[in-house]
Design a protein around this nucleic acid. Structure first.
Lengths: 107, 107
DNA sequence: TTTACATATCGCAATATTACGATATTAAAA
DNA sequence: TTTTAATATCGTAATATTGCGATATGTAAA
């Protein structure tokens, strides 16, 4: 036990849940907001801004990369993590489709 | 360690992450879709439809209730779980606001 | 009231996640 | 080339989540 039974759900359900899951941590929400609002994306700045260790931030960045939300580019000694706008919009669309097709009810 | 450091994030960030987190499991996505598409909401039907034990479904339903997405009504011997449409729409709005205010970028 | 059924809760085992120090890796600067 | 700085990865500890059997609770029927 303790394992999510992925195989009993549809690919669409698993995909959707995966997107929600990655967004389901305040540090990752904060990272996205910081990158967006400050128009800055240097990993080190995130470490300074958010009160988590460098290793932890790096781990969260990696998760955001797995769903394609962030792409990292080498910027001299640093890394610049930027939001992939196309992917961002696509995910928003996917989530909205879920919300729109799942709102009828029984009572 | 292993504890999310809630206190270093804003209430808005924690709230948002909490919503995403609850939606971040395929069983809960499936439950919402089933309730919506079948226009049925009897707990026992969900157990039969989704391949998880009754105790497990009950637990997932509880989590969906914590964010107010579902409300349960007694229906004879059974329980009818329905989507709270107002809350549903409010959550969709909240997520969209996050997406819309977090899409500018640096590079 | 007894019985039967539906759902919730408890307790536990397996696994996943979060966080961080230590250390590797990489790239610019000295 | 050595040093310095930034980031990634590894290993590990603490905690959270998932899932389920067993059992409690509640409700309707017999």
């Amino acid at each position: 036990m303790g394992v999510t039974k992925t195989q009993i759900f549809t690919e669409q359900q698993n995909d959707l849940a995966q997107l929600f899951k990655v967004l389901g941590h305040p540090a990752r929400v904060a990272i996205l907001q910081y990158i967006s609002n400050q128009n800055a994306c240097i990993c080190n700045d995130l470490v300074a801004e958010i009160g988590l260790a460098q290793a932890t931030i790096s781990q969260h960045l990696k998760e955001l990369k797995t769903i394609g939300l962030l792409k990292g580019e080498v910027e001299g000694k640093s890394m610049c993590y930027c939001i992939d706008i196309e992917r961002w919009t696509a995910i928003q669309k996917q989530l909205n489709q879920f919300f729109n097709t799942t709102k009828s009810n029984c009572c």
